[in-house]
Nucleic acid binder design. Structure first.
Length: 464
RNA sequence: GGCGGCAUAGCCAAGUGGUAAGGCAGCGGUCUGCAAAACCGCAAUUCGUCGGUUCGACUCCGACUGCCGCCUCCA
């Protein structure tokens, strides 16, 4: 079945065809590990996970690479700020390396909680320094670089297709610049490939290079890593929408200048999460929410957030609020109950997947990952005239893409001892027809975050 | 100032030329000791405003209004 994806390069939905038949190289921009990921960041990783799962669903072998930026990402623009890692280290009184390690682990935990498939290759920027230096060398030989007092820079005026991704008007951009310029730069858009360690101070992260001791520029790592692990010409590169104008634009410039070939065929970007009032989530906005403090702290399953993200298309800003999480929580619980309903008949045994609904579902997700509509297809299927067995098989097939762990529902019944006791007591009370006590116990169970379902087969208690 | 995006029921949100998916909340019903869960049914004569094109527009064009993103660190 044909797969259509929106390509930021052409600003159109295009049919996707990998360079090598049957296999896809996927590169997703990872985090800068100087702080926790917030749920806005996480939205992008969920979008990328859906993309990857859709590729797999369509039968492609996917090789997925994600970078960990642990050096070189500056706090200010114009290549003049502090390194975020060193700043994080100073803030927390730890070494930059400890900071990187700590937040990398935290990030990976978040992805696990959200059931995001791990990439095949994790790469740290600091593990590819030789490759990055080699790339600068190539650019130097080809005449794309120039030195300044603080580093080696890429001359963007020498790369003719510089705006092919951003579609920006550089003249206009220059006029509107409201940031102080680095006077040694030849063009406002030039960027650092290598930064020298500051005079007289010792950085925690620094390396020798042909140009002097220092560290690589932020954009360089992604070029070096993706080429190292995926080759010079690649299929799909993703990231947040904010990366279009600078980060990805610079990656394209340095990569294509170095290889003379077009870099990635598809560029895909996820839209932001915004909170009530329409603001994006960011540290600087003071509305920074992590998975932990937005959901887990309130005893809400992180998969609720995953489910919530399916309700808005990835290219549209997603509204976040307590109400939206509550709606998603109820929505997921409903879906889980629907699946439980068709599981109880003991029909877990394989039945064939409904071809009609599978086609419909496949067609929908293949239309630029239209998850909101896919969710509607699922409801349509669950409310159709299919047998429970077929519904079960079909929804499990869909869950390969959804990743909501719907197959684990039956085994998810382990109740805490306190709840078990209440359940046993309520069972007894009901046998004794002592409904006052029974209702009282039901309220207690629900207060602990569980839902009581009395079915003809007995009492069912599930986590909300 | 430049570039781009968005505006659809109480809330969230698909659809993008042929007469409005789905979810949450709500209401009615079946079931139940009562609830809950599940299931069945109901909910926008209408898609920010004003014009235009068309047999026909939420969908195309223009203007306007409001909101947002990037051009500063950023997913």
């Amino acid at each position: 079945m044909k797969l259509y994806l929106y390509n930021s390069l052409t600003r159109k939905k295009q049919q996707f065809e990998p360079i090598k038949s049957g296999a896809v190289g996927l590169y997703t921009c990872g985090p800068t590990v100087y702080n926790y990921a917030h749920i806005g960041n996480l939205r992008t990783y969920i979008f990328e996970d859906i993309l990857k799962r859709v590729l797999i669903y369509n039968g492609y072998a996917v090789k997925h690479v994600m970078n960990i930026t642990d050096v070189g990402h500056l706090t200010g623009d114009r290549d003049m700020g502090e390194d975020k890692m060193e700043a994080g280290a100073a803030r927390e009184g730890k070494s930059a390396w400890d900071i990187a390690e700590y937040y990398t682990r935290s990030f990976k935990q978040d992805l696990e909680q959200l059931n995001v498939l791990a990439p095949d290759v994790w790469v740290k920027a600091t593990d590819t320094i030789p490759e990055q230096i080699a790339l600068i060398r190539t650019l130097e030989e080809k005449g794309y670089t120039y030195p300044t007092s603080d580093g080696i820079y890429f001359d963007t005026s020498k790369f003719k297709d510089y705006t092919k991704l951003s579609h920006q008007d550089l003249e206009a951009l220059r006029e509107g610049a409201r940031v102080e310029r680095n006077p040694e730069k030849r063009n406002a858009t030039d960027f650092a490939l290598w930064k020298f360690s500051p005079q007289g101070s010792k950085r925690q992260m620094e390396w020798d290079s042909p140009w002097g001791v220092g560290f690589p520029g932020w954009h360089l790592e992604c070029s070096a890593m993706s080429m190292k692990f995926l080759g010079e010409q690649l299929d799909i590169h993703c990231g947040g929408t904010d990366h279009i104008d600078v980060h990805h634009t610079n990656e394209i410039a340095q990569s294509e200048a170095a290889t003379g070939k077009s870099f990635f065929n598809f560029w895909m970007h996820g839209a932001f999460l915004i909170i009530q009032g329409g603001k994006k989530m960011a540290k600087s906005e003071g509305n920074f929410l992590t998975l932990e403090n937005a959901l887990m702290k309130n005893d809400i399953n992180p998969l609720v957030y995953r489910f919530a993200s399916f309700l808005t298309h990835y290219r549209k800003p997603m509204e976040y609020s307590d109400e939206s999480i509550e709606a998603a929580r109820n929505g997921l619980l409903h879906l889980q109950n629907q699946v439980r309903q068709i599981t109880t008949a003991g029909v877990e045994a394989q039945s064939s997947v409904s071809a009609e609904f599978q086609n419909k579902f496949n067609e929908t997700i293949n239309d630029d990952l239209n998850m909101p509509r896919a969710m509607a297809v699922i409801q349509e299927m669950l409310k159709s005239k299919l047998s429970d067995a077929r519904k079960y098989s079909t929804v499990m097939d869909f869950d390969r893409v959804l990743g909501l762990q719907l197959d684990q529902l039956a085994h998810d019944q382990a109740l805490p001892e306190a709840v078990q006791k209440l359940v046993a007591a309520r069972l007894q009370a009901r046998q004794d027809k002592d409904f006052a006590t029974s209702d009282q116990l039901r309220a207690e169970i629900e207060a602990l975050g569980y839902q009581v379902q009395d079915t003809p087969d007995g009492m069912n208690v599930v986590k909300k």
